[in-house]
Design a protein around this nucleic acid. Structure first.
Lengths: 230, 230
DNA sequence: TTGCCGAAGTTAGACTGGCTAACTTAGTTA
DNA sequence: TAACTAAGTTAGCCAGTCTAACTTCGGCAA
C-alpha cells in the first residue's frame, strides 16, 4: 500500500483514540474515584481498552485475557466479575467497533460538501481509513465475530445494521427520488463490497504483497463513479 | 446470501476435495506402505488434511495441533518431526490454498468460451466460489497469514503472486494490445478488490446479516462490466 | 543374516491461557 | 457501626504448544 490517506484525516483520529485508550488501561477515570487500591474503579473499561491495544499490537489471534489483566494490573480471575468470558469481552469490542465505524461514516458524509457520488466516496474512504487505523478491530468485527457469536444476537446485529443503513440512505439519494428500496439496497451492497475489499486487502498487506502501487483514494473514487448507475 | 452458485460448479469440486482429504486423515496413502503400526506412513499429509477439516469445521481460530493429532491418531509431540510448529503447518496450508485457488481460476478462465469480460467474470466467480467452499482456508490465506508469517518469506510470496498474475494477464487482454503494464495491473487490482469483497462479506455471513438478497453472480457480472474501461 | 543407524514415533513435563470455586476486602446503606 | 454486596484475591483444573529424552522399526552395509 502506498498513501492516499489524508495526513490529518480520520485515520489519525482513530490512532490517537487508540492512544488515549491505552493510557486509560492502567488508570481509572475520574468519575467513581477509587484510590486504585484493592478496587480498580473501572476495570471493565480498562480491560476493553487493553484489549484494543493488544488486538492492534499482536493481532486478534494473539489476544489473551491474561495479557489484558497484566496491563490492567489485576489477577486473571478479575475479568469474570465483569464479563462472562473472553468471548463476551470481544463482543463488547465488536459492538464498540460498529458504533465507531458508523459514527465516522456519518461524520465523513456530513463533512462532504459535494454531491451524492462525492459523499459516497467520502464514506468509503472513511470505511477504509477505519480499517487501516484499526486492522485488528476491523478483522474482529467482520471476520472472527461470526465464528464465535450467536447469529441470533439481536443487539449485536442491530449495531451492524445501523452502520449499513447509513450507506443505504445515501445510495437511495444517489439513485434519485424514485429509487425503489430494493434498488438502493443492491447498490449499497455493491459499494460496500468494493470498499470492504479495499480495506481487507490493504489491511492484510495484500496490495504490498502484490508489489503494486495502489492509490486508494483514486481507486475508491473511480470505482464509486463507475458503480453508480449512469 | 442466497444462491448464484452453480449447482455442479467449482464449489462442489472443492467440497468433495475436502471430503476426500478427510478420509486421508486416518489412513496413509498406498505409496510408502507402512503397516499403520508404530509408523504412520504419511503423517505430514495426514496432519495437513486434518487441519483442513478442522479449519472448516471449527474455524481457523479454533484449530489446534492437538485436534489434528487426535484425528491422525498420534501423540501431540509427533508433528514436530515434520513441522517446526503450528505456524509451519499453517504455512503449508496457505501455500496449498494459493495453489488451489490459482488452479481453479485458470480452469474457470480456460473453460469460458466468451470474451475478456466473460472470462474475468468467470474467474471472479471461481474466486468467490473458492472462498465459500473453503471459508476457513480463505481467511487463513488472506487474513491470519500476515499475522504470523515472515513478510520476507519469498516462497510463500511467490505462491500468492502466481495467483494474481493470472488476473493481470486477463486484464491486459481486456484493455487491448496497447495496454501498458501499469494500467493492466491497476485494473487487475480493482477487479480483485471487488471479488475479494464479495468473497469476504458472503463468507462471513455479512450479506445475510444485512438481510439483503444478494445474487452474487449477477453482482459480479455487473461490477466486472462497469469496472472494465469503456 | 545380522547388527547398527537414523527417521519417526513415544512419554513426561514445563509453561501459558481460560475459567471456576472459595475466600477476602472495602464501599454503601440501614 | 454492623451487615450486605460488589469487586477483588489465591489456588487449581484442564487444554494447548512445545521441548527433552527415550523407544521402535525399517533399511542398508558388512
Amino acid at each position: 500500500m502506498t498513501d492516499a490517506l489524508p495526513p490529518g484525516g480520520p485515520a489519525d483520529d482513530d490512532a490517537s483514540a487508540a492512544r488515549a485508550e491505552a493510557e486509560a488501561v492502567a488508570s481509572p477515570p475520574p468519575k467513581r474515584r477509587a484510590k486504585r487500591g484493592y478496587h480498580h474503579g473501572d476495570l471493565a473499561g480498562a480491560l476493553v481498552a487493553a484489549a484494543r491495544v493488544v488486538i492492534e499490537r499482536d493481532g486478534p489471534a494473539n489476544l489473551s485475557l491474561s495479557k489484558c489483566c497484566r496491563m490492567a494490573g489485576v489477577s486473571t480471575a478479575a475479568p469474570y466479575k465483569h464479563f462472562s468470558g473472553k468471548d463476551d469481552l470481544l463482543r463488547r469490542l465488536v459492538m464498540d467497533g460498529f458504533d465507531d465505524l458508523g459514527a465516522r461514516m456519518r461524520e465523513a458524509r456530513d463533512a462532504c460538501p459535494g454531491g451524492s457520488a462525492d459523499r459516497i466516496s467520502a464514506m468509503g474512504m472513511s470505511y477504509v481509513a477505519f480499517g487501516l487505523a484499526n486492522p485488528g478491530l476491523f478483522r474482529l468485527v467482520f471476520g472472527m465475530a461470526h465464528e464465535m457469536h450467536d447469529p441470533e444476537d439481536e443487539e449485536l446485529h442491530a449495531c451492524g445494521m445501523t452502520c449499513f443503513q447509513t450507506l443505504i440512505e445515501e445510495a437511495a439519494r444517489a439513485i434519485g427520488p424514485r429509487a425503489e428500496p430494493e434498488e438502493a439496497k443492491h447498490l449499497a451492497v455493491m459499494l460496500w463490497t468494493f470498499v470492504h475489499g479495499v480495506a481487507s486487502l490493504a489491511m492484510d498487506g495484500n496490495y504490498d504483497a502484490a508489489r503494486t502501487d495502489v492509490d486508494i483514494r483514486r481507486m475508491v473514487t473511480m470505482a464509486t463513479e463507475r458503480l453508480l448507475p449512469a
